[in-house]
Amino acid sequence: MKTVFVTVGTTRFDELIETVTCSEAAKALKARGYKRLLLQIGRGSFVPDADSCPELKLEVFRFKDSIAEDMKQADLVISHAGAGSCLEALGAGKPLLVVVNDKLMDNHQLELARQLHTDHHLLYCTCSSLTETLKTMDLSVLQPFPPGQPKTFANFLDKVVGLK
């Protein structure tokens, strides 16, 4: 079943959860063929009812030890701008839409999301433009984000400490 996984990490981001479950957003997702909407809502106080969007099969949870399995099963990830969530989604090779919380003051976490957007690894919007983005976005423009190469670090270090 084509699944959208929404994750807010350890934060609270009620506005995102409210927007993505509103009927217009749900319709946009359905029009794209998504059937299931899985929400990780963290410390948020807004908990949508399971029957609040009849278009989609809605599931909600707060936290899990690992969301790796949910990432793996997702066909689209919608995430807050947290670096951990962004890197996890890109590491799993999933199309990623980052929703910036413009109510939060600028923090360094945004730096990474912005750069990854500039380099075409993810799409980027705010809550007010989310529904529009879901309608018009083109996921085919996204480039894969290659994993880090710790071996180049090890080779460099071997040389400078005199092991090689």
Binding site: A83, L87, H108, Q109, E111, L112, R114, Q115, G148, F153, L157, V160
Partner: peptide, 25 residues
């Protein structure tokens, strides 16, 4: 040896700023 996080794109973390002065690599 200090490795700055991938999260820092344009500015160093506070720890990074200090360790830039003290680290060898």
């Amino acid at each position: 040896v200090y490795v700055e996080s991938i999260c820092r794109v344009h500015s160093l973390s506070l720890t990074g700023k200090i360790l830039y002065l003290l680290s060898d690599y």
